[in-house]
Nucleic acid binder design. Structure first.
Lengths: 296, 296
DNA sequence: ATTTACTATCGAAATTTTCGATGATAGGAG
DNA sequence: CTCCTATCATCGAAAATTTCGATAGTAAAT
């Protein structure tokens, strides 16, 4: 059974005439005859009685009318939903490093939620390789990386920004205020870093390797809020993007170390797959982040 | 949008694979690709995301699934209803002369109703020409005529029966018991007959006309129950089929007149149009009448 | 009696659907 | 690392289906 025939059937039933239905639908009369016949043969029952050029719905035809209307209504309903607001409902799966996730939850999320209350957001954290894998397998709608500058012909980078990274120590550290430090000056200090998988941690290790150096951190942990808190209250040193350390820098609990010979370019990038269908809600999210999040 | 595509869409979504859906549906894979593409183009939206040979429903695809299921369910539901009992629901429009209608209501109808409680019956009375007209215009499902023997290539006569007709008078009539009467003996008496349009009345008039006779009744009325009652309590004479007069004959209030020179063949015929779709309920009614009604 | 209006049917034309082959690409096996 | 397999997209050709126009048959209207 095809919808075309059902629609024709509805018209015929309403107009009580094959000829009029044909005119209304832009078919020839023989086509309408054929379509109805086709329906009747498929259903193996008579839908119209034809007695002396007058057609009358049979019992079964009558019943079909009601089904046909319901079916048509469903389709119209769906099509209408496509054009309309319904897209502002939706689900978005975002994967990012823990630090970005935390930052977003604390600052932007509520705002976004208030603006688009029907969009549900799923935050997942993951390191760069996991994120890219999820992107490739369409398990994430968008990812936000903190890593080297990433480029791949399958990706679309919605927004990117070079981050400021600094070595940080507690405000009372012996290195506080010292100028022109070298990495060698602090390499033996106790370090607390994110885990290796994290994008900038990997870049950091590689950069050190270039100089034939290696740091074995005393603690590795993904949660940057914990790192900053620990650094502030110990003699440990860490290497973190400014947006993470900013609050404690401003409150005077942390200080930057003036290390001159480590210059790593870490980018914050909002990425989605080039084949990704951008729903209205996803677009709203991306636009939102473009405007607000990366302004730090 | 065609149902074929919608069904394919459901299968693809459930199996998560164009190839598997093609196998299941007996299409080639390229056909499935084409069908889905067709749907997407018509709806002007992506239904599946294809990222690295993995397909995932988009938001819109997800929504369509639920609509597609509903649509399929409606169709299945209708088709199922066709095969099943649903035909014992129904509506039957019967047109007959008043006398037959009355007889049926009094005797058979309750019985039929008990047997098929979901079949609604509409009784209409009409004279022969009206009935045939209704048959031709499909305004009646079946008619029951009391008339000459009717035949027409467009009609199907489900049952027929030659009726016994008699002149009747009250039991105390001066003609009661008289043998070998001629129509001329009684033609001047006061007659009470059904109206002209009624089949057997017309036949009766024509038969008299052949003998160059004419009867001008003192009363014409369709209700044969009224006729018989009046005849029984007056000196009026009527000409009626036996099934009408039977009760009062048996109770001794009426008597037959032994008129020898009028022999009219009146048939009771159950007729429907040859193009009429015979629903199960209509068939049940016809079968019922065949078996019970005409056994008088 | 003639014309008009309506549906059925038929063969031809037009359109749509389907297929098979091919290409591209990712993932797994060896 | 390479080969093999699985997957979806695309294309042209073949098959199937739909549509049309013409015609017929018939009832109703004029």
């Amino acid at each position: 059974m095809e919808l075309r025939n059902l629609i024709t059937f509805i018209h015929v039933a309403e107009l009580g005439s094959f000829t009029k239905a044909a005119e209304q639908l832009g078919y020839s009369q023989s086509t309408v005859s054929f379509q109805i016949k086709q329906l009747e043969e498929e259903l193996n029952c008579l839908l119209f009685e034809r007695i002396n050029h007058t057609i009358t719905l049979t019992e079964r035809g009558h019943k079909l009318i009601s089904y046909a209307h319901q079916i048509r209504a469903l389709i119209d309903d769906y099509k209408e939903g496509l054009g309309g607001e319904q897209d502002l409902k939706g689900h978005i799966h975002i994967v990012s490093p823990d630090s970005v996730c935390e930052e977003m939850i604390n600052s932007n999320y509520i705002d976004f939620h208030n603006k688009y209350p029907s969009v549900s957001i799923q935050f997942t954290t993951g390191d760069s390789s996991v994120m890219l894998d999820m992107l490739d397998h369409n398990e994430a709608d968008v990812i936000i990386t903190l890593d080297q500058h990433l480029y791949n012909k399958d990706y679309i980078i919605a927004k990117e920004e070079l981050l400021s990274m600094h070595f940080v120590a507690s405000a009372g550290s012996k290195f506080a205020g010292m100028k022109n430090l070298s990495i060698k000056d602090i390499i033996s200090e106790p370090f607390i870093l994110t885990e290796y998988g994290q994008g900038y941690r990997r870049v950091f290790d590689k950069e050190l390797a270039k100089k034939s150096l290696e740091i074995v951190p005393v603690l590795e942990i993904g949660r940057t809020d914990i790192i900053t808190t620990m650094v502030a209250s110990s003699n440990m040193i860490s290497y973190l993007p400014d947006f993470v350390t900013k609050p404690l820098i401003e409150s005077g609990k942390l200080c930057y170390l003036d290390v001159k010979d480590i210059n790593i370019e870490i980018w914050k990038q909002l990425i989605y797959h080039k084949n990704k269908w951008i729903s209205k809600s996803l677009k709203a999210f991306i636009d939102y982040v473009k405007e607000k999040e990366f302004s730090s």
